[in-house]
Design a protein around this nucleic acid. Sequence first.
DNA 1: CGGAATCCACGCCGATACTG
DNA 2: CAGTATCGGCGTGGATTCCG
Lengths: 117, 117
Amino acid sequence: MEKKPDHCRVEDALGILVGKWKPVILLYLLQEGTKRFSELKRNMPGITQKMLTKQLRELEEEDIIERVVYPQVPPKVEYSMTEYGRSLEPILEAMHEWGTRHTEHKMKKQIQVKSSS
Amino acid sequence: MEKKPDHCRVEDALGILVGKWKPVILLYLLQEGTKRFSELKRNMPGITQKMLTKQLRELEEEDIIERVVYPQVPPKVEYSMTEYGRSLEPILEAMHEWGTRHTEHKMKKQIQVKSSS
DNA sequence: CGGAATCCACGCCGATACTG
DNA sequence: CAGTATCGGCGTGGATTCCG
């Protein structure tokens, strides 16, 4: 297969993942399966309803997650990864691993800085 | 190997890649090897010197790229991926591929929207 | 040539209040 | 319970100017 990154599609993938809470949301839904709005909120200390709603809507818009509304009182809304959304999993795992190694890398660097001062 | 993404390192990796021109810069350096500042600038229509400098500095700070200054007039500065930086390549490629498929996915969706209106 | 410095528009995100 | 609406700070990125 030819490699022609003239048109860089990395940004398309990046655009989906970027958003302060998106990686956490995706990782959570991938692990836990279907979750209600309140469960998501409870699991992410510090997030506001507005932000959670916004990030979920954006992911839904890209067909990464699915939103199911149960017409009842009180309301119940469930979110889950779509089949298509799961195709992001390898990328997320790769980034998680790389990020872990990078954290170690930066710690080593810190030590070098200290010992040379 | 246990999976414990309690502490999500995805964001660490994401932080490196995020920046309007970083993916392009990285892909370019990965393909072309060492490049001068002016070559980078020429290859990225629309970028300003300020932004190019800033993105390069940030990548250098994370040890992803290396910056070599030749003390001469006129100045000459070369940039290249570090060995460490190359470890990002598989992730970038995965994102590029995913992004390509995602673009197709969105096009299909557009067609559906049109035909249902 | 490869910057640094300044000014500014815009969008992300947080805090808060209100609603069916 | 699961949102919507509004206000505002702050950071990112663009345009422009000056420098060794």
